[in-house]
Amino acid sequence: MWQVYLSGEIHTDWRDRIIQGASEKQLPVTFSSAVTDHEASDAAGDVLGTEPEPFWRDHKSSKINAIRTKTLIEQCDLAIIRFGDKYKQWNAAFDAGYCAALGTPYITLHDADIIHPLKEVDGSAMAWAKTPQQVVAILDYLTTQQ
């Protein structure tokens, strides 16, 4: 069973499309991810007390979220890192760098129009996919070929 970590952009259904495609093909894959509920993620540190300064609220929440992210990336066999066009995904770039440092293979998923800003991230990736269907095809190949 392959452990696949899904990182990055949270504003489209790319995760669902990959999970559904893998399920339809009955691939031996389990998926994990960062918290994708934006409000819940932003509020993760609120359990430690309210902060009058947004910086410190974000700081505490990012630390708590990093526990999950760090643990799941360290446990995965492969990460899929999605970059969308609507927002800058600094967290996804950080996840890619962490994978590269650990030697964890990762695949980037993004459109061609952001090749230039992602050249270093793509340079360490094992593949660049443009669609969730391509990711599913890669997972199918990796997990079913003898």
Rank of each mutant, 00 (worst) to 15 (best):
Glu51Thr: 12
Ala43Cys: 09
Thr143Cys: 14
Arg68Gln: 10
Thr12Lys: 11
Gly123Ser: 08
His59Gln: 09
Asp46Ser: 13
Thr30Glu: 11
Leu139Ala: 10
Asp37Lys: 11
His110Ile: 00
Gln89Gly: 06
Pro54Lys: 11
His116Gln: 13
Thr12Glu: 12
Cys99Met: 01
Leu139Asn: 07
Lys70Arg: 12
Glu24Arg: 13
Asn65Gln: 12
His38Thr: 11
Gly21Val: 06
Ile10Glu: 05
Pro132Val: 04
Ile115Glu: 14
Ala43Gln: 14
Thr36Gln: 10
Ala125Asn: 00
Gly49Asp: 01
Glu24Ser: 13
Val47Met: 12
Asp13Ala: 13
Ile18Met: 03
Lys70His: 13
Arg68Trp: 04
Ala66Leu: 10
Glu51Met: 09
Ser61Lys: 07
Ala44Gln: 10
Asp37Asn: 15
Leu78Lys: 11
Gly123Arg: 08
Pro105Gly: 01
Thr108Trp: 01
Lys88Gln: 07
Tyr141Gly: 07
Thr131Val: 06
Thr50Val: 05
Ala93Met: 13
Thr30Phe: 02
Trp14Tyr: 00
Phe55Ile: 01
Arg57Ala: 15
Leu6Val: 08
Ser32His: 05
Asp16Pro: 01
Trp90Gln: 15
Gly84Cys: 01
Asp46Ala: 10
Thr12Asn: 13
Cys76Ala: 15
Ile18Gly: 03
Leu6Arg: 10
Leu109Trp: 02
Thr71Tyr: 06
Thr69Tyr: 00
Ala101Asn: 08
Tyr98Asp: 00
Pro28Leu: 04
Gln75Glu: 15
Ile80Leu: 08
Ile115Trp: 01
Glu120Met: 08
Ile138Gly: 06
Glu39Leu: 07
Ile18Arg: 05
Val35Leu: 08
Cys99Thr: 05
Thr50Met: 04
Asp77Ala: 04
Gln3Gly: 06
Gly84Asn: 02
Ala44Ile: 02
Tyr141Leu: 10
Gly8Arg: 08
Thr104Asp: 04
Thr144Lys: 14
Trp90Phe: 09
Ala22Gln: 03
Phe94Ala: 14
Gln133Asn: 13
Glu24Thr: 10
Ala137Gly: 09
